[in-house]
Amino acid sequence: MTVVKSVDLRCHPERAFALFTEHAGQWWPAHRRHTRQDAPSVIRIEATGRFFERGSDGTEIELGVARAFEPAHRLLLDWYPGTGREHPTQVEVTFEAMDTGTRVTVRHGPGVAGVDLFGLNAPGYDRSWDLVLAALAGCE
């Protein structure tokens, strides 16, 4: 199961990438924030790999880890929201130059959750993950 979503932005890939990483606090859905909702929080994805939310009181919460940070091209994120850091999902974001701007495509799937959830060394790992994928496919 991978959720694929894309949007065409009227700006260059460089700006689209900056909007996505430096100003994530501006597009992140308000009701999906961890910090108090009456004060704006900052959300950033950094080249160092840090991916966090910082509340107005300075409290920081890790939202994941950037595994790849390729400005104007691509991001690969371990993603904690929704499933927790014990079972991260994986998000790949690509930025593709178009005549009219930039196509941003998000691919959100089990990714490393398969590794974390089922353990690479666990016997039957392949079959276990196959089970979940088949079940998810059945929800289409």
Binding site: Q26, R32, V104, V106
Partner: peptide, 17 residues
Amino acid sequence: FIDSFWDAALSRLEELA
């Protein structure tokens, strides 16, 4: 969860751009 998150996020991103 994943579906609704990205629908909201990407439409907001479009406005920002």
